[in-house]
Every structure is written in C-alpha cells, then in structure tokens.
Design a protein around this nucleic acid. Structure first.
Lengths: 213, 213
DNA sequence: GCGCGGCTCCTCCGATCGGATGAGGGCACT
DNA sequence: AGTGCCCTCATCCGATCGGAGGAGCCGCGC
C-alpha cells in the first residue's frame, strides 16, 4: 500500500527561489504544497494552523529567522518536521538548528532532486544533513565541549572592556573609584580564566570568544 | 521601429534560482537567453565568446566571484553590460562592483518583474541600483573618503599577530630575528595607524576592523 | 555555620612599555 | 633624481606591567 501524500509548507523570502521550490514539489505526485510565505512570522502562524507534515524554511527570512520558527514549532510539540535551507553554512546556525531538533539541513545550491528526496526521507522519519553541514557541525560540537565558558564576572568584564579601550590599570582605578591594586587583581583573575598572561592576549582571546565588542 | 532582442547570459550557481531566472526571461519576448553557467570561470569564458548584451551574475559563484568576472569583462573593454545579483548587501562588494562599472546591482529577493525591467533598462544604457544597495553604497563611500584605510604593512601585521598571542617585544624580536628596538618601532607605527596608543587597544581595534583573527 | 566566589586592598620587584628622537638602507613610482 | 614607504636599529626615561604572596569583607547556598 501507498502512504498518503506528504503535505509541505514553504517558508522562503526570495520569490524566484520560492517559485522554483513550488514547481519542484508540484512536479512530484507524492507531495502536496499546502502553503508558502516569505515572512517568518506569517510562516509560523500558517504552519501552526495547517500542521503540515514537513515545513521547509529558509534561515534568512524577515519577521522570524528559520531557527526561530523551528524553535517555536518544537516548543509547541507539533509533529511537523522541519527542513532548513540556508545559503551559507554558518556552524553556529547549524548547531542551533540541530539542537532544536531539525530533521534536515540543506544548502540552497542543492538541486531539486536532492531537496525533494531529502524531504521524502524526512517524512519517513529520517534525518538528513548536507555534507558541507556535517563538517561544520562536528567542529562546532568539539568547540563547545571543551570550552566550558569561563564566564567573567561583571566586574572583570567591565575592567577587560576598559583595558581593550586602552586604559592602564591606574586609569581604570580612577574610572571605577577603586585602587590600582584591585584592578591588577581583577586582571590577574581574568588572565587565569582566559588562559593567557597578558593584556593584549586577553583582549584577543575575549574577542574570539565573543566576550568583548 | 523596434530594437533587436536583448541577449542575456546568466551566471548563477543555485540550480533552482537559475531555473527561475531562465523562465522569467523566456517569458518575455524581448529577451533571448544565450547561455548560462553555475561556475564563474566558465561564465567568463562563455561571455567572452558569446558577447551578450547583458550578463547577469551572482556574486557568490565557485570559480570566480561575480565581481572578478565583472572586472575581467571591463578590463577586456567588452560592450557587455553587467547586472550583479547578490543575496546579501555587503557594502564592500557593492562598492567594488560600482567601481568596476556595474550597470545594475540587485538583491536576489527581487521579483522577476523587477529583475527583467532592470535588465531592459540596462540594455538601454541606464544604471539601476536597488534601494537597499544605495544606502550601503553611500555609507561605504563616506567611509572610504575620510578613513583612508590604514592598511598595516606585512611586517606590522605579523608583529601585531604575535602581540595578540601574548608575546612581548623582546619575545617577538627573538622570534623574528630582529632587534627589540625595531619591534617597538613597528608597534608605534601600528598604534598610529590604528589611532590607539597601547597594545591591548591595538588588538581590539584590529579585530573590530577584521585585520586580525 | 561554613565554604565559596566575588570584590576589595596591600607591598615588593624585575621586566617591559610607550614616548621622544634620531638615523640609514632598500625599493618603487614618478 | 627625488619622494615616499617599509624595514631596520639605537638611546634615554619615567610609567606601567605581571608575578608572588598576603589579607579582609560580604552574600549566597548547603
């Protein structure tokens, strides 16, 4: 016996690309396009009421990002499976999607057969990750695991900011109305948390970790 | 009397988007699609031999970026006019395209009518810039005018990198087999170029400008 | 109540920093 | 031939840095 047709919803803000997707799915009898939108907010609303089998979402949409729509769908406990489509392969974005329970993550330069096949696989409960995505994801996971966020205290963060602005310890002491000795103590603690032993390196490390700027 | 049909060449690496473009142009009798490719290098070769009236290029293509193809076409002195299509609006990319003599710069979320009309206008010798693009361009021009890119020399960049790694001037001197005095001179020049007066601030500023990391 | 972490402060010291200033060689563009 | 940039090196000096090693106070959680 044959299963019912797979209902799909398309969230994609580029009209031409959307048109291409619609045509691709219409060309295969096992799919049924039940709706589409170029706005994340509207897409989420319609997905909630239509409850399609699969929602294909572009990460870059006005209103809500694909990942936000994904998160909302999963928070609701809906059975709708989500396929993310993204032009770039940003490891952080991929990571978030996977963490949120995405069923497939494909790049937008995939051809129609690849996309349709992936959606079919997702409808059967499988998970599909594009090869380019897998590499980035592995790196991201490794990164997050043994990083264990040192998390600077508010005071330390404040002092590191001033240091990055070029202020010396005495400068900062005046600025914060504390003694130079205290500033130096904070700096030493910052160095330890960041695994460095000097101002410039601390600033570089902090910026790489997104703690600064 | 009516002019001859406008021959267009399409450089676009997303199969689905390319398909959409081809369909859009075929639907209007005044255009004739003479070729297409998803690879920048191949696109340039074919444009050189086909000499279309207008070449529509995606900025993000494997082989050669849209801007590189544009530069090559203009370097050759070809009469082919170029329309750039880009998903993101990166001011630096827009600036380069305009500097290279692009005839139109559109975003990929434009609808088919907008794109086709722009190409028709370009064929008549007009220049078209999408609204989102104009704002960024204005900003970029302003930026370049009174900023005059400090652009660190290779040696300076090298020394700044080591500084960001936590090395002291004597350390760097040993590393690079030069005297400490020279390292300090380079550092002072770096400070001046970046508008700071201290290592940590230099590192912070360099990272913000994308010179580091 | 006891511990832990955050915040505060102290001294002593050698190493390093940044400012000021000067100078010479190499290479490219004009 | 001259100009400008890059790279090189030097000296002198006061200010600052980072390391080492203390210490006390407060608030939160167990």
């Amino acid at each position: 016996m044959k299963a019912a047709r797979v209902s799909v919803y398309l969230g994609e803000d580029h009209p031409i690309y959307l048109e291409g997707l619609v045509r691709a799915f219409r060309a295969r009898a096992e799919f049924e396009v039940v709706g589409s939108s170029g706005d994340g907010r509207q897409a989420l609303d319609e997905i909630r009421s239509l409850a399609p089998d699969v929602a294909i979402l572009d990460e870059n949409m006005p209103g809500l990002r694909g990942n936000d729509v994904l998160a909302a769908i999963k928070r609701d406990g809906m059975p709708t499976r989500v396929v993310m489509l993204s032009a770039s392969v940003d490891s952080a974005v991929v990571f978030r999607a996977v963490a949120n329970g995405v069923s497939a993550y494909l790049t937008k330069d995939s051809d129609r057969a690849t996309i349709c096949d992936a959606v079919a696989a997702v409808a059967r409960g499988q998970t599909v990750l594009a090869p380019q995505v897998q590499a980035g994801l592995a790196g991201e996971v490794r990164l997050r695991e043994h990083e264990t966020r040192p998390a600077l205290s508010p005071r330390e963060h404040e002092i590191l900011e001033q240091t990055a602005s070029g202020l010396s310890a005495p400068d900062i002491a005046r600025e914060l109305q504390i003694s130079t000795a205290t500033v130096k103590t904070h700096l030493r603690n910052i160095y330890e948390k960041l695994g460095v032993s000097e101002r410039a390196a601390a600033v570089a490390e902090a910026m790489r970790r997104g703690l600064l700027e």
